[in-house]
Write a protein that binds this DNA or RNA. Structure first.
Length: 193
DNA sequence: TGAATGATGAACT
DNA sequence: GTTCATCATTCAG
């Protein structure tokens, strides 16, 4: 499967997008410079029927509003002290999204080390809250589009093999807990778990 | 207006 | 394995 057109990937089914984003490059440009990483782990959240999704039951609030918009928009939200970043998927009006859970650093690694307080390199981007801090992704990015600067996604090298399994941190969501909606590049050491 | 709740990460034992 | 920092969002009242 080719990655010749990133906008096309946004418009696939959410599960397909979650797989096809693996290998793509996430870039954030700020006044301090650019930082980029290869996406190696994602999770799909499939809207009103998915108890683990913020948009479960069609919940349309200030927070979830952007999920109802066109594919490719940026959905950021805060939990505890962290910001997490999602790619909006599915046609306009269908509130689905893909969470970016882990990156393999590609560019701006010194900047990432500074932002992450000089953690070990393996710890820079191997989790959803870690990678947003490393790249400087914040709530300022909410509602932007991943086809435009300063936060965008470009094609990269496809994984040789993809693994899947249950999503992380959604123990209290009934049957949705076990859906195999988490995808990662098999064997990549930057995967969160 | 208040209280419960996390799609987490870090630091522990 | 466990605890907890820490706060916007959400919903009950």
């Amino acid at each position: 499967m080719g990655h010749s057109n990133i906008k096309k990937i946004f418009c696939e089914s959410t599960l397909q997008t979650a797989e096809d984003l693996l290998g793509c490059i996430l870039v954030k440009e700020t006044k301090d410079g650019a930082a980029a990483g290869r996406i190696v782990e994602t999770e799909a959240y499939t809207g009103p029927e998915d108890r683990a999704a913020h948009s479960y039951g069609g919940r349309r609030t200030k927070r979830t509003e952007i999920m109802f918009h066109a594919p490719g928009h940026v959905y950021t939200f805060e939990m505890h002290t962290h910001c997490l970043v999602n790619v909006v998927t599915a046609p306009e009006g269908r509130p689905e999204a893909v969470l970016i859970r882990a990156l393999e650093p590609v560019d701006g690694i010194d900047l990432m080390r500074t932002r992450r307080n000089r953690q070990k390199d393996i710890e820079l981007t191997n989790g959803p809250g870690k990678l947003t801090k490393a790249l400087g992704i914040t709530m300022e990015d909410y509602g932007r589009h991943f086809s435009e600067k300063p936060l965008y996604i470009i094609p990269g090298q496809n994984p040789a093999e993809i693994s899947s399994g249950p999503r992380i941190g959604i123990e209290n969501t009934g049957e949705a807990r076990d859906y195999p909606y988490r995808f990662w590049e098999t064997g990549n050491r930057f995967v969160s778990k």
